[in-house]
């Protein structure tokens, strides 16, 4: 049950991330066409595309961890023998969990600060900052979970297959 809900959340956010990509394209096209027809393009078209870049990156990042899409260099992991390689791979994944946990914790603090201070992002509009920064704890929190699957799970983050290549 928890597992299904979690997976729905992970893939749901990845879906939002993909929609953001499409939205960026649509918003640019609409504002250019409006401008050239002599209309005033809505300022929110421009601003929402800029915010879209943030949401896209953060909300999609945990899914990309699961897909092993975050590029890394296999230098040491390729040179080490089996057991040592597996140990190193899990240790690196654990370090990633630690980084994500720190950023989740600081991200929550940042959101709380933004709410407490009533911070706004001032571009075309006054947009509550916490609505942007909330993406950080959400993203890094889920990334921590995803990296921990490479610490404790059956699958490893590093292939080691590359042999001498990497």
């Amino acid at each position: 049950m928890i597992n299904t809900t979690y997976k729905a959340l992970l893939y749901g956010l990845a879906g939002v991330s993909g929609l953001m990509l499409v939205w960026i394209m649509v918003s640019v096209i609409v504002s250019v066409v409006m401008r050239n027809m002599g209309l005033q393009p809505f300022a929110w078209l421009f601003t929402s595309a800029e915010y879209g870049l943030l949401y896209m990156t953060m909300l999609g990042a945990p899914w990309l961890v699961r897909e092993k899409g975050h590029v890394h260099i296999e230098l040491l992991t390729a040179a080490l023998p089996g057991a040592a390689r597996r140990l190193l791979s899990r240790a690196v994944a654990a370090a990633c969990v630690l980084i994500c946990v720190i950023l989740t914790w600081k991200g929550i603090e940042l959101v709380m600060t933004n709410i407490k201070r009533g911070d706004f992002d001032t571009r075309a509009y006054y947009y509550p900052r916490w609505l942007l920064t909330i993406a950080f704890p959400l993203s890094f929190g889920l990334m921590a979970v995803e990296f921990s699957r490479f610490v404790f799970g059956r699958e490893l983050m590093h292939s080691g297959e590359a042999g001498i290549h990497e």
């Binding site: 401008r35 002599g38 209309l39 005033q40 393009p41 300022a43 421009f46 601003t47 001032t122 571009r123 075309a124």
Partner: peptide
């Protein structure tokens, strides 16, 4: 009218609300 005016958040209150210009951010 017909002016393609570049704006930003310092002067948009003036350009848009008063001049009624097409502001391009």
């Amino acid at each position: 009218e017909g002016l393609k005016l570049r704006g930003n958040n310092v002067y948009n209150a003036f350009f848009t609300n008063y001049l009624g210009a097409q502001v391009i951010d």
